[in-house]
Design a protein around this nucleic acid. Structure first.
Lengths: 243, 243
DNA sequence: CTCCGGTTCCAACAAAAGTTAAGGACGCCG
DNA sequence: CGGCGTCCTTAACTTTTGTTGGAACCGGAG
């Protein structure tokens, strides 16, 4: 796989949301990345492991999650092409959660040492990555609000809108909709509800003519009511370097 | 107020959790900090504001929160002396949440420009602060799990244990207990439940002889069952620089 | 093509949490 | 000292969500 294909979504995203310079792009293009294929539903890094490299999603969907003593699992975030979900492992060496694939994925691995050297060579790039982890953090905050305060239908709508915004940035939304390849079990784990209730909520939104979710694809039926229900304020995604 | 008193808790915390060097400590001691007093229940920085300084808690309790369209509020984290809750505003210029006092507070304000200069002068300090924002992020992840998956009594116990661990680090826990100066309304907002239900849960834990919460002070009655209920794994606090 | 496992879907019932309403404790201030 | 406001406390009732169990659907492997 050619180098620019591997980095395409990453560079596209950084250009928009971090205001990256051409020189910085060249540094990122020069980064050695080891590409590996992963099947669906496979752990990439596990809670408790000591990571020595970061994982760039080239293609596919991943999720971060934690499992509590009772065995219940909470999905913390969804991740798409161009993102580096475990950038935090650079400084928080022991993982405090799992990173796993949802769909078959193409993943690129970048050595920690390589990144650390790049940071010392170009502090501006370090700050850009720092900013990236801060946006990550902002998304966690919104996820807390979603799970803590919104009724289940609004939770689902909110996660859908967030995913759509991020997919749009890398050109993965068309007018028929966008991919959201989660099982109802996983949707439940993301929203903090059971799979049965997730099913109820999905049905309800379909019956009310708001949004349709079928075989991992989302089709919005009534854009206005969809947005209203989601109660979405795009600011927390910080998709502009001046924000 | 003498400079070392202002920075005492910060330095104490960084020494333990970030492995800071004496030279770095001197840099931090040299940082100009503007100290101001705040009454209880007062906003420090508001959602949507553009921050130009960071806030160091010298004394007192603060909380970060977000309010959704329906008017419901979710508390995202609690903060104690020695912490800089809005360090993220250095790179995410527009606030995406509120920071406010819970009790009367002594707060120190450090200019963004000052911090940025320090970062360029001493990249190691920048990395230390980066790590600090990453620990913040790890705490948000655990908060998501708490609100998303645990039953209400376990949620309360978990928040209590987390707070106790952090207070212990700065020497604010004795054998009679520790302070947790939240109203039941605020506890509800932290746990994603109503104040009425928060009251039920507090009573239940008291009646079961697990933990007592009275006038902002926590007394553990049965340490073993308390920890078991909380399902607490201290790893996510990353309180050691090698982790 | 058929079987099989994993989803999706659904209904009935149970448990947890939200809502409303109201009395009581406590501290502050005039 | 008394009144007022905030918080705590509790009960009764409603709504949401969880649990259990089972049927229908779908796609891939043999």
């Amino acid at each position: 796989m050619p180098s620019d294909t591997i980095r395409a979504a990453l560079v596209k995203r950084l250009r928009i949301s971090a205001g990256i310079s051409d020189e910085d792009v060249r540094e990122i293009e020069a980064l050695p990345i080891a590409v590996r294929q992963y099947p669906a539903e496979t752990p990439v890094v596990r809670d408790g492991e000591r990571a020595t490299e970061c994982c760039l999603i080239v293609e596919g969907f991943c999720a971060r999650s934690k499992t509590i003593a009772s065995g219940k699992r909470q999905i913390l975030s969804l991740h798409i092409a161009g993102e580096i979900p475990d950038l935090m492992s650079l400084f928080l060496h022991v993982m405090d959660h799992d990173l796993s694939t949802l769909t078959p994925c193409t993943l690129g691995f970048i050595n920690h040492e390589t990144l650390r050297k790049l940071h010392h060579r170009r502090p501006v790039v370090a700050e850009m990555f720092w900013r990236d982890t801060l946006i990550d953090s902002a998304m966690f905050r919104e996820w807390i609000v979603n799970v803590g305060q919104r009724p289940a239908p609004a939770r689902l709508a909110h996660v859908m809108v967030e995913l759509r915004e991020r997919l749009r940035l890398i050109g993965r939304v068309d007018d028929t909709g966008f991919d959201m390849p989660l099982t109802q079990e996983q949707i439940g784990e993301a929203l903090g509800i059971t799979a049965v209730h997730a099913n109820r909520v999905i049905r309800q939104l379909r019956e009310e003519g708001i949004v349709e979710l079928q075989r991992g694809r989302v089709t919005v039926l009534d854009e206005f009511r969809f947005l209203e229900l989601a109660d979405f304020d795009h600011r927390y995604l910080h998709q502009s370097p001046t924000l």
